[in-house]
Design a protein around this nucleic acid. Structure first.
Length: 483
RNA sequence: CGAGGUGUGGCGCAGUUUGGUAGCGCACAUGGUUUGGGACCAUGGGGCCGGAGGUUCGAAUCCUCUCACCUCGACCA
């Protein structure tokens, strides 16, 4: 009976164990986060999905502003000649750039690229605006979409167009630029962990994996339920690569023309994919309260009975000031609603029926644990607040535990392959820094170097020898198969 | 780009082998009874079967071409 019941509860969603990809596809479509558009690789973000994005945006935007950044907006189209100015950059992005060749019926003199990222156009403008060190630092950000022509696409994780933000800053000194780069990756991590409840490992990308045109790329990497890593945000120290290529100069404190130091950093709607795959389960979404579009859904029970709907609306109204709350007074059966809202990942369900009204209470059910409690109505607000906090914390704790369970150490390639097979996830291993080792690990195992943790999270494993070539290595790195 | 798969009411599918008036479940609409873990009864609306050619008296079904999407790999926020 339990089994049968269980099957019934999740009939719309393939179970994770059976087929993780199908589970993901089912979840994003059945919960109406996205739909496929008429153009391959481009997805429609539906209201429920977009509301999640708006909450993520708000969390980041607030912190960007708090650290002195201002928003701006640059054009969608970039002349080919501009894109070509930074050699490594073009090389990196050329294969996935979309081109505009015609305006109306007329062929353009110069092709225009649909931005895959905006370093080039922004730098071209910065070079016009910057004159003196007194204007520095430049601290700007833009929220926009970018286009990268992808061969295989999956909602949120890889689509040909995606929404993101890109910060672009200029600084007087390399130290300041480095400080900014680190500040932003730390903000990324803080929001990922505290708002999205998504634990991440932070570190440096290898030369091979870094952003095209960067001196250094820092990344945060999250681990999904299937043991694959998801690059969830990157912060680049671009040095003077672009500022020289774009001739951005200013008169410095010594009255000399100088190129400033440059950073850029971005997070995208991919984060939503991360939230789905980190917290979701066989019932569907499981949204962290901090970004859930609906934190509490009010379900009137036996709503045709005298006073039930009135009471439900009264409760909704009272809660509206402090919570994102919705009421479901459709005439679907209660059981159907339970499952529907669980699938949608709403953190708390509030049931109010004749019995509760008589007792001046309501029932609260947690999405994360399934636990149900009766709460007196005059304690509702405080209890909800506590519960939402507890759910937020629990989601993080569970995700962290999952990551730790899926993180293993490998001292040689035999262990590496064994771990990856038996317990897919992050593999911590020493790396000599040689790209040939990085390549051969990828060749043999499919795992890539996700990041090299920062100093304070570094450790020496075993005798400090490279997992691949056995030569002395002073860096530990995280490896994983990745999205 | 390689390999596989799928296209039939909004969704999920059957029908294709063996050509003969397009069906089922869910959803939707109306009315009624229900309502604390996916309710029930009755009535009703909705599809030229992805597209284009062809074979045939007749094509969802056979043939040719084509398009789209999904999954898995290789490459990438």
């Amino acid at each position: 009976m339990v089994e049968k019941n269980k099957d019934k509860l999740v009939k719309e969603i393939t179970s994770m164990d059976e087929n993780f990809s199908q589970w993901y596809t089912d979840v994003v479509s059945k919960t109406e986060l996205v739909d496929y558009s008429p153009v391959k690789g481009f997805m429609v973000i539906r209201p429920y999905g977009y509301a999640i994005w708006e909450n993520i945006q708000a969390a980041y935007d607030k912190r960007f502003k708090e650290t002195g950044h201002k928003n701006m907006y640059f054009p969608l189209l970039i002349p080919e000649s501009l894109l070509n100015k930074e050699a490594q950059h073009v090389e990196g992005f050329a294969p996935e750039v979309a081109w505009v060749t015609h305006g109306g019926n007329r062929k353009l003199e110069e092709r225009l690229c649909v931005r895959p990222t905006s370093e080039t156009i922004i730098c071209s403008m910065y070079s016009k605006w910057l004159h003196t060190y007194r204007q520095l630092p430049y601290l700007y950000n833009q929220w926009c979409s970018v286009v990268r022509w992808e061969k295989t696409t999956r909602p949120f994780l890889r689509t040909s167009e995606f929404l993101w933000q890109e910060g672009h800053t200029l600084h007087e000194t390399p130290e300041e630029a480095q400080e900014e780069t680190m500040q932003m990756i730390n903000i990324y991590r803080e929001v990922a962990e505290n708002v999205l409840a998504m634990p991440v490992v932070v570190g440096l990308k290898s030369e091979k994996e870094k952003f095209a045109g960067a001196d250094k790329t820092y990344t945060m990497e999250a681990l999904m339920h299937d043991g694959q890593a998801l690059q969830s945000g990157t912060s680049h120290n671009l040095g003077q690569n672009f500022t020289k290529a774009f001739d951005i100069q200013y008169l410095d404190r010594n009255n000399e023309q100088t190129n400033p130091y440059h950073t850029s950093w971005g997070v995208s709607t991919r984060l939503i994919g991360g939230i789905i795959m980190v917290h979701g389960d066989d019932k569907g979404l499981n949204l962290p309260p901090a970004i859930a579009p609906i934190q509490v859904v009010v379900l009137p029970i036996a709503q045709h009975k005298e006073g039930v709907l009135d009471k439900a609306y009264e409760i909704k109204k009272a809660l509206e000031t402090n919570f994102r709350v919705e009421i479901d007074d459709s005439d679907n059966s209660p059981g159907w609603k339970f499952n529907q809202w669980e699938m949608k990942g709403v953190p708390i369900r509030l049931e109010i029926g004749p019995r509760d009204i008589k007792n001046n209470q309501c029932i609260l059910a947690r999405r994360d644990t399934g636990e149900k409690i009766a709460v007196p109505l005059d304690e509702l607000e405080t209890t909800l607040k506590e519960l939402l906090d507890a759910i937020q914390q629990n989601l993080f704790d569970k995700a962290l535990k999952m990551r730790e369970e899926k993180t293993s150490v490998a001292l040689n390639m035999t262990e590496f392959e064994k771990n990856l097979k038996e317990n897919p996830g992050f593999i911590k291993a020493m790396w000599c820094g040689d790209e040939t080792c990085e390549d051969s690990i990828k060749e043999e195992t499919g795992a890539t170097l996700r990041c090299i943790p920062l100093e304070d999270e570094q450790e020496i494993l075993g005798e400090g020898k490279c997992v691949c070539c056995d030569k002395p290595a002073d860096k530990m790195a995280y490896f994983a198969r990745a999205y």
